[in-house]
Simulated assay, not measured.
Amino acid sequence: MRILDNARLIFKAAAPIILAISVSIGLIFYAYTTISGLSVQTKQIVDVQVKRLEGILSLRVYANEASIVIRNIILETRQAEMDGYKKRYDAAVEAQSKIVDQLLALSGSPERRRANEDLRRISETLRSANDRVINSVSRTRTKRQRRSCSPMHRWPVPRCATPSHRGSIC
């Protein structure tokens, strides 16, 4: 401690301050590097989660779109409108397929990969059921159109309304 006895008063007062400033600078540097690393990790996690959630929501939107278009195909009788609905259905199904592929690419764990593969199977099952409905409606309409073009079914046949002849041709 003899060294401090011979030192000037300014040095004696400045030494603790310099030590406190250097410790503070070290803590600030440590906090900055730690927080910047956490920031990068958090940003990556948020970006992946946002893409995943956006994909799931888009998948729901396109599945609803496909269902609505199928309903319109079932109800519609004009061929031009049915062709437009079929194009919209094909676009929705293609978008669903792309989204499921993106979700599979974003799978970070085996459990999530299995869930996304299940989602793919469900999507393909829904698509095959919807395609069967479209084909069934198309075949039914084609048969109805052929039947309605025959001369036998062109005009309604008048029926008798008298009780004794009810249902017979007048």
Rank of each mutant, 00 (worst) to 15 (best):
N6R: 11
N6G: 13
N6Y: 08
A7V: 09
R8A: 10
L9A: 14
L9F: 12
I10A: 13
F11A: 07
K12C: 08
A14N: 01
A14R: 10
I17H: 08
I18W: 01
A20D: 03
A20G: 11
I21T: 10
V23S: 06
S24D: 04
I25K: 00
L27A: 12
I28T: 14
I28D: 05
F29C: 04
Y30I: 09
Y32G: 04
T33N: 09
T34F: 09
S36M: 04
S36H: 04
G37R: 07
L38A: 07
L38F: 09
V40C: 03
Q41C: 00
T42N: 15
K43R: 15
I45L: 13
I45K: 13
V48L: 11
Q49M: 09
Q49H: 09
V50T: 15
R52A: 07
R52F: 08
G55M: 03
I56A: 01
I56C: 00
I56Y: 00
V61L: 08
V61F: 08
Y62L: 09
Y62T: 13
Y62M: 11
A63G: 06
N64P: 03
E65N: 07
A66S: 13
S67P: 07
I68D: 07
I70L: 14
N72D: 15
I73M: 13
E76P: 00
T77R: 14
Q79S: 04
G84R: 04
G84T: 03
Y85N: 09
K87V: 12
R88M: 10
Y89Q: 06
D90K: 13
D90W: 06
A92I: 07
A92N: 05
A92Y: 06
Q96Y: 07
Q96E: 14
S97V: 02
K98C: 00
I99F: 11
V100G: 02
V100N: 03
Q102V: 06
L104W: 00
A105K: 14
A105G: 12
L106N: 10
S107I: 06
S109Q: 09
P110R: 11
E111N: 14
E111F: 11
E111A: 12
N116G: 05
E117A: 04
L119Y: 00
R120D: 01
I122R: 08
S123L: 05
E124M: 11
R127F: 01
S128Q: 15
S128V: 15
N130A: 15
N130F: 06
D131K: 10
R132H: 12
R132W: 05
N135R: 12
V137H: 03
R139L: 10
T140V: 05
R141L: 12
T142N: 08
